[in-house]
């Protein structure tokens, strides 16, 4: 069966100037470098990593909002058409995006109802206004907004309700894929759970696929069928969320999991990574993680490790992963 979304060897590089204009030399920044994954209908792929690791760029590449510099995105086996073309517009109906800041994603001067109906007009979906209105009402009801919200404005609603508007607006086109870029990070804890539960219920009912991006490992585990961990533009570990977070194999995933403060871990010792992620322009040679890795050997400094399948089915990009897993067990 062809996957709904298939991404192979996806890359995006930017030419940037090191230092200030006009003195700095030009250099290449690899925001995303050789990322591959598949996503089936009705499933969720969680993408985690720290700021600057390329999660959001990956999301934009998938939707064609940023042109690729290498690799390919396929939807239902068909290559993604160039952005702005008619076939791309038609395809965008099936792939929608949800951003972190709902207030920034909404038009403050349009009423909630008009914004939810707008995609129908943009995509030239026929029918009279009354039909659009009916459809918008039904969609608002599906995401837990009341009928009286139809004529309100975004600033009159709470953060959680605004994210529901964004969802209703994305879902009114009946998409198959929703790219969610930190959709709950701006919300309070008690509201996060409401929105996450809504996303899970909608997936069940509508068979949606989610590409779910977050820096919150606990939320990613809650929603994902599969997780990919990114570091400096590459996937370093990918697999089943429960196994991956319970026993991370890649040294970076280990450090990331260990850095999450939880009450259960209170008495346990954590591994604090030395240093900070390097500037993506100065990506270290070999394994990009080697300067911060306590296991690094000479080979890590010269040879870039490829993602490969481990005994338990997950994938990791580390030369020493078998030894590291064996010593942790």
């Amino acid at each position: 069966m062809t996957a709904l979304l298939e991404v192979s060897d996806l890359s995006r590089a930017y030419e940037v100037r090191r230092g200030s204009w006009p003195f700095g030399k030009m250099a290449t920044l690899h925001a995303v470098d050789g990322v591959s994954f598949e996503l089936q209908a009705g499933r969720t792929l969680g993408l985690v990593g720290e700021s600057g690791c390329g999660k959001t760029t990956t999301a934009k590449l998938v939707l064609g909002l940023v042109p690729v510099t290498g690799g390919e995105v396929r939807i239902d086996g068909e290559s993604l058409p160039a952005a702005g073309t008619q076939p791309w517009r038609a395809l965008r109906r099936r792939m929608q995006m949800v951003y972190q800041d709902p207030l920034g994603a909404l038009d403050r001067r349009l009423s909630v109802g008009r914004q939810v109906m707008e995609p129908l007009a943009i995509h030239g979906l026929g029918g009279r206004l009354a039909e659009h209105r009916e459809k918008a009402m039904a969609m608002m009801d599906a995401v837990g907004l009341a009928a009286h919200h139809f004529d309100r404005f975004p600033h009159e609603l709470s953060g959680g309700q605004r994210q529901r508007i964004v969802l209703a607006r994305a879902l009114i086109l009946d998409p198959q894929l929703l790219v969610c870029d930190e959709p709950i990070s701006a919300l309070d804890v008690s509201i996060q759970a409401q929105v996450v539960n809504l996303l899970l219920a909608l997936q069940q009912r509508l068979g949606l696929a989610y590409l779910f991006i977050s820096h919150d490992l606990r939320m990613i585990r809650q929603v994902s069928h599969e997780v990919a961990v990114m570091y400096l533009g590459r996937i370093v570990e990918q697999g089943d969320p429960d196994r991956l977070f319970a026993a991370p194999a890649h040294p970076y995933t280990q450090a990331l999991v260990s850095a999450i403060p939880t009450h259960a871990r209170q008495k346990r010792r954590r591994t604090v990574l030395p240093g900070e992620p390097p500037n993506p322009v100065d990506r270290p040679a070999g394994c990009a993680f080697h300067p911060r890795c306590r296991h690094a050997v000479a080979r890590c400094r010269v040879e870039t490790p490829q993602l490969r399948v481990l005994a338990d089915g997950r994938r990791a990009a580390c030369h020493l992963v078998e030894q590291i897993v064996a010593s942790a067990a």
Binding site: V196, R218, R221, A246, V257
Partner: peptide, 14 residues
Amino acid sequence: ALPELEGPRRALVP
């Protein structure tokens, strides 16, 4: 309302 990082996944209660 908080998800856990380990153990069985349970539905969040908002």
